[in-house]
Every structure is written in C-alpha cells, then in structure tokens.
C-alpha cells in the first residue's frame, strides 16, 4: 500500500514548565515565584507515509527537536495524539479514555522508531560493533552470534566495516554518527528520526554522514530529518516541512518550497541560508 501512514501527529501541544528557584528577595518578602511556561508546540499536525523522506526546516527554537522527541516519547505531550504504525504513543486508549501506558509498553513501541541524535550518544564503554549489538542483545534478545550477524552488515552499510573494534574515543565525529545510524537501523524500525545529525560535526565530516543518510533514504526507509543543510534537504526530501514558533507554517515538495515559498517565515529562512535573494 503506497499511502500507508507510518506517523500521524494530530494537534499536538507541548509546554515546558520550568520551576525557577525563588530569589532571596522573593523568599524574604514571601512573594510567590513565577513558574516559567514555554509553549513549544502549539497544535502540530503531520502525516508521514511509508517510504517518504521528510525534512523539517526552521530556525533554532522553533520546536523541531521537541516534535521529534515527542514522537518517540522522550518528551510527553500535553494534548493531541501521536500514532506510529497505528500505535498510539505514550497511552493506551480504553473506551475513548487515554490511560498512561507502562514503561515496558513505551519501550516496546520505541523499538519501532529509530532515533539519531545530534551528539551521537554512543555507549562509550562499547566498541562500534558493541554499540550496534547491545540493543539487539538486550532488547531484541538475540544471541551473540545472531546479533553479530545483524550488526555487521549495518556497519558495512555505513562504511565502517574496518572500524568495528574501535571505541568511540577512537572514532571521528562522522564515524561516531555513522555508528549511531547503524545502531538505530539494526533494530529494523519502521521509521528513522534524525535530529540535526550533522550539526555537531566539523564541516569536512558532514558529507560522509549525509551520504549515508541519502543511501538509507534511497533504500526506501521512511524518515524524518531535522536539518539546517538546505541543499541536502532539497536533494533528498519528498516533502519539506517548515516550522516556526511551535507550528508548521508551510509544507510541500522541495521543488515548490525552494522556488516559490508562500509563507514569509519560509522566505526569511531561505534568504538567510542564501537560497533566495534577500
């Protein structure tokens, strides 16, 4: 089925509440201290179909990371619903009521969602191979031999077949990120989420990681990529989603977004990146 929905984000809201410590003055005068509330997602709707590659663009602080993190429940949403592969994320629905689900159920759902972080987040006490094998062993309960058989082709695929015994401390940033990609892919998720996968890299290492992501996209993997690499987004995305201040302001095929953006925020973003004349 070509139009099968993999991710369905419906009217999602998220507010961060940070308790600022009361100042000495506030404590002495007994004035209540203010809770800082930031509404980061203000009603986001997004549908991703099987095999699609979505690029999310938007200036810093627009809520892109928060949206991705809500999809695999690293953040908990305040309102709305998120479905991945038909499963409601974070809750069970009983008679129309939402009931918070057990941690083990969340974990189970997360195995179907690959997540690649800006800062790689490799297990520092494990080699490249060990990093990829760990979740196969610990979560999927594969034997060491089976895990190895799954891990090796994934490390080959990201071009690290010769670095499997290196610890993260002996890998470059680009290599670390490729291990992280292999680790997520090896779980065979329905969708891969990338949160600025090249933003922490030295410029000369960006290309190797983008090449790997492009290769995965071409294999038909469903993915959502938050990126500031405009040319890359234009090159690989089937659809561009532009976020600003917690809402999606515009979405469409790259051919249209990059040549005839409708929303002023999209135009501003593109001219700042030198794609449109200022």
């Amino acid at each position: 089925m070509a139009d099968e929905t993999i991710i369905d984000v419906r009217d999602v809201h998220k507010t961060f509440v940070s308790d600022t410590k009361p100042t000495l003055g506030q404590r002495l005068t007994g004035k209540p201290h203010v809770q800082k509330r930031v509404e980061v997602l203000k009603g986001v709707d997004l549908v991703v179909h099987r095999g699609e590659t979505i690029a999310i663009l938007g200036s810093s602080g627009s809520g892109k990371s928060t949206l991705l993190r809500c999809i695999n429940k690293l953040e908990t949403i305040d309102a709305g619903r998120i479905y991945v592969n038909g499963h409601l994320i974070g809750y069970e629905e009983r008679d129309g009521e939402l009931i918070a689900e057990k941690a083990s159920v969340t974990a189970q759902k997360r195995t179907d969602i690959g997540f690649v972080f800006q800062h790689f987040n490799l297990f520092l006490n494990k080699t490249a191979l060990g990093n990829v094998m760990a979740p196969l062993r610990d979560v999927k309960k594969l034997s060491a031999a089976e895990a190895r058989d799954v891990a090796l082709p994934n490390l080959e695929m990201v071009g690290l077949g010769d670095k499997i015994d290196n610890y993260p401390s002996k890998l470059s940033g680009g290599q670390k990120q490729r291990v992280a990609i292999a680790r997520a892919l090896a779980m065979n998720p329905s969708v891969m989420l990338f949160d600025e996968p090249t933003s922490a890299l030295d410029p000369e290492l960006v290309g190797e990681v983008l090449a790997v992501i492009k290769k995965i996209a071409q294999q038909g993997t469903t993915m959502v990529i938050v990126t500031h690499e405009m040319q890359f987004a234009r090159d690989i995305a089937d659809r561009i989603v532009v976020m600003d201040q917690g809402v999606i302001v515009e979405e469409g095929p790259p051919s249209r977004i990059f040549t005839a953006p409708q929303h002023p925020k999209t135009r501003a973003l593109l001219s700042r990146s030198g794609i449109l004349p200022a």
């Binding site: 695999n72 690293l74 941690a103 083990s104 974990a107 189970q108 997360r110 195995t111 969602i113 690959g114 997540f115 972080f117 800062h119 790689f120 987040n121 490799l122 297990f123 520092l124 006490n125 760990a134 979740p135 610990d138 979560v139 999927k140 992280a180 680790r183 997520a184 779980m187």
Partner: peptide, 27 residues
C-alpha cells in the same frame, strides 16, 4: 554517565530499569 546515553538507550527500546542496569551501572 552522560544523559545522552540514557536517552539513546531509551530510544532503542530499553526500559528505564534495563537502561540503568545495562547502560548506566556498568559504566
């Protein structure tokens, strides 16, 4: 142990207690 590793483990489907025992405590 960096919080990032905890998040990575969770994102890979480790439960919170498995994250503690398999990722955080060994390190």
């Amino acid at each position: 142990v960096e919080h990032g590793q905890t998040e990575a483990a969770l994102s890979l489907g480790y439960t919170p207690s498995k994250t503690l025992w398999k990722v955080v405590i060994p390190q």
